[in-house]
Simulated assay, not measured.
Amino acid sequence: MGMSVTISAASAQDVEQIFRLQYLCFQSEAELYGNYRIDPLTQTLSSVREEVATDLVFVARLGDEIVGSVRGAIDEEGTGRIGKLCVHPRLQGHGLGTRLLRAAESALAGERAATRFRLHTGERSEGNLRLYRKAGYARVGDTTGEDGVRLILLEKEAAAPEFVASA
């Protein structure tokens, strides 16, 4: 019988696994752009530790193994910024990226009162762009990252909280 993947908030004990997973997952992006200086590959372990301590970070677990991760933070304008969404290559295409994205959106809206969500991906990252469009994101611009990669900026409005009547 197979194990199911669970999504939960990351803890300080998860930092090293997140760090290693991120490095593995973003190799294909670096190869796509011929640029191994992209932020997820140059980020330090201490920086990941700081993000886990201050941001909303979620992980996908298969047993004891972390097989996916995403970060969320709120900016001064109330925009939830989502980043570094990654899923282990052997588990891609099974909806884990969508589940992690929803977890980040839900927490940013519920815990940090985000009014909209913003994220970015490389312009050649067709799989990522497909995932984000399917999740309701629309292109709002583009920019060039510090590493020289051309990025597509995407946004969507946060859904209004559902009203639940009680008797």
Rank of each mutant, 00 (worst) to 15 (best):
S4F: 05
S4K: 09
S4Y: 05
S4Q: 13
I7P: 04
S8T: 11
S8R: 15
A12S: 13
Q13C: 09
Q13K: 13
D14C: 05
D14E: 11
V15C: 14
V15T: 15
E16S: 10
E16L: 09
E16D: 14
Q17V: 03
I18R: 00
I18L: 05
I18E: 06
I18A: 04
F19Y: 15
F19P: 00
Q22K: 08
Y23P: 00
Y23A: 13
L24S: 02
L24N: 04
L24P: 01
F26Y: 15
F26N: 00
F26Q: 04
S28V: 04
S28R: 04
S28Q: 09
E29R: 07
A30R: 02
A30K: 00
L32C: 05
L32A: 08
N35F: 05
R37H: 14
I38W: 00
D39Q: 14
L41R: 11
T44S: 15
T44C: 08
S46N: 13
S47W: 07
S47L: 12
V48A: 01
V48R: 03
R49N: 14
D55T: 06
D55G: 00
F58D: 05
V59H: 04
V59P: 03
L62H: 08
G63M: 09
E65C: 10
V67W: 04
V67P: 02
G68F: 00
S69L: 05
S69T: 13
G72W: 00
G72C: 08
A73K: 14
A73N: 10
I74F: 04
D75E: 13
T79K: 09
G80W: 01
I82A: 05
I82H: 02
K84I: 07
L85K: 01
L85I: 12
C86N: 08
V87W: 01
H88V: 06
H88T: 08
P89H: 14
L91S: 10
G93A: 06
G93H: 04
G95L: 06
L96D: 01
G97C: 01
G97N: 02
A103W: 03
A104G: 02
E105N: 02
S106M: 11
S106T: 15
L108H: 03
G110M: 12
E111N: 11
R112N: 02
A114Q: 03
T115P: 01
R118P: 02
T121S: 14
E123Y: 05
R124E: 10
R124V: 03
G127R: 13
L129R: 14
R130T: 14
R130P: 05
Y132T: 06
Y132C: 02
K134I: 07
G136E: 06
Y137N: 01
Y137L: 08
A138L: 11
V140F: 07
V140S: 14
G141M: 10
G141H: 09
D142R: 14
T143Q: 12
G145F: 06
G148H: 09
V149P: 01
R150Q: 11
R150L: 08
L153V: 14
L154G: 06
L154Y: 08
E155G: 07
K156C: 03
E157R: 14
A158Q: 03
A158Y: 08
A159F: 07
A159S: 15
A160K: 12
A160V: 10
P161M: 08
E162G: 12
F163D: 09
F163W: 07
F163H: 11
F163T: 12
A165C: 06
A165M: 06
A165W: 00
